[in-house]
């Protein structure tokens, strides 16, 4: 079967690519587009390491067909920092050592950013359930949750 031509927007940039009908968004991101920040931990939507947003909605890119990106807005970890300025979550993760090996970190950061966009003042429980789809085997989640809640407080303060 011929490849499909897809026009989409990735991290604000108009982007075109060719893909097989069966190819996942994750495969296209990591392969032809060279955006390897999204990681493949399972390929079945269980680990969250490939988390991106599609029109603002959190998805596992391994469960999205690449062809579905047509005329949609995709955001990936590569677009999280603005130039040389880290997103407050990225900065806080560094300050509070909320990563060890770092393989889950892109997905966790993408999920946490969407959480704070939708709920600037989450409780610990809300943050824990929101991030329950992002497996981390290194940290026990403690420092991740603390970093997310601290960032939320700082961003609320900055917005006042």
């Amino acid at each position: 079967m011929a490849k499909l031509h897809v026009s989409t927007t990735i991290n604000g940039e108009p982007t075109e690519f060719l893909c097989e009908p069966s190819q996942s968004m994750l495969d296209v991101l990591r392969g032809p587009l060279g955006l390897t920040g999204s990681k493949e931990g399972c390929g079945s939507g269980d680990c969250g390491a490939c988390t991106i947003t599609l029109d603002g909605r959190l998805v596992c890119s391994c469960l999205v067909l690449a062809a579905e990106a047509q005329d949609r807005e995709i955001r990936t970890i590569e677009g999280m920092a603005e130039g040389d300025r880290l997103h407050p979550l990225q900065q806080k993760f560094l300050e509070m050592a909320a990563l060890q090996c770092g393989i889950c970190t892109p997905g966790v950061l993408m999920a946490a950013r969407t959480l704070l966009e939708q709920n600037p003042d989450p409780t610990e429980t809300e943050a824990r359930f929101w991030l329950a789809g992002n497996l981390c085997r290194c940290t026990g989640y403690d420092k991740i949750i603390r970093a997310v809640l601290d960032t939320a407080a700082e961003m609320r303060e900055a917005a006042r």
Binding site: S38, E78, M80, L86, Q90
Partner: peptide, 9 residues
């Protein structure tokens, strides 16, 4: 190696 890991690079 922090910035490397929070930016996906």
């Amino acid at each position: 190696d922090g910035a490397d890991k929070v930016t996906g690079r």
